[in-house]
Simulated assay, not measured.
Amino acid sequence: MRIESVEIFSDRTNAAVMRHPGRAFPGVLVQGDSLHILCQQADAACKEIGRDAPGYEDLNDLRDTLRSYLNHYKATLAEYGMKLPFYEPKLP
């Protein structure tokens, strides 16, 4: 972990806009619990639409991208011994 200054353009709850050092454009900070909810919504949408429906592949790609962000978030918190801000049941 390192500490650096970031430019904060907006600190609106669940939608902070900030620019990381060295980046040309700002990004949006999505809180971990909000990211988890987005993943759950994407899972539900994929289940609802079904594999044979038009647009499923694009929706599934979106779900996979969100899930990769969430997995990176969870691994990073685990690396630093931090608890998740949401509950995930343990798989058997």
Score class of each variant (00 low, 15 high):
M1L: 15
M1Q: 13
M1A: 14
R2I: 12
I3Q: 11
E4N: 12
E4R: 13
E4A: 13
S5R: 14
S5T: 12
S5P: 01
S5F: 11
V6R: 00
V6G: 00
V6E: 00
E7D: 15
E7P: 03
I8D: 05
I8C: 12
F9A: 14
F9H: 14
S10I: 11
S10F: 09
D11M: 10
R12D: 12
T13V: 15
T13S: 15
T13A: 15
N14G: 09
A15N: 13
A16R: 02
V17E: 05
M18P: 00
M18G: 00
M18I: 06
M18K: 01
R19I: 02
H20T: 13
P21V: 09
P21Q: 10
G22S: 09
G22Q: 07
G22N: 05
R23G: 07
R23L: 14
F25P: 01
F25T: 14
F25N: 14
G27M: 09
V28F: 07
Q31W: 03
Q31R: 06
Q31T: 04
G32Y: 01
G32S: 10
G32T: 04
G32W: 00
D33A: 07
D33W: 06
D33V: 04
S34F: 04
S34M: 09
L35A: 02
L35W: 01
H36W: 05
I37Y: 02
I37C: 03
A42E: 04
D43E: 14
D43T: 09
D43S: 12
A44V: 07
A44F: 05
A44R: 09
A45Y: 03
A45W: 01
A45T: 05
A45H: 07
C46M: 04
C46W: 00
K47W: 05
E48T: 15
E48F: 14
I49H: 02
I49F: 02
G50M: 08
R51D: 10
A53T: 08
G55K: 08
G55T: 06
E57T: 10
E57V: 08
D58W: 03
D58M: 11
L59K: 04
N60Q: 12
N60C: 12
N60I: 03
D61Q: 13
L62H: 08
L62P: 00
L62V: 11
R63Y: 09
D64S: 14
D64L: 15
D64G: 12
T65A: 15
L66T: 01
S68L: 06
S68C: 04
Y69G: 02
Y73L: 10
Y73D: 07
K74H: 06
K74M: 15
K74A: 09
A75M: 06
A75R: 08
T76G: 05
T76N: 06
A78P: 00
A78F: 07
E79F: 07
E79R: 13
E79P: 00
Y80F: 15
Y80K: 13
Y80C: 09
Y80W: 13
G81V: 05
M82P: 00
M82H: 05
M82N: 04
K83E: 11
L84P: 00
L84Q: 01
P85I: 02
P85E: 04
P85W: 03
F86L: 08
F86E: 01
F86A: 05
Y87M: 10
Y87V: 12
E88H: 07
E88R: 10
E88T: 11
P89I: 09
P89C: 07
P89A: 11
K90Q: 10
K90A: 12
K90R: 13
L91F: 10
P92T: 02
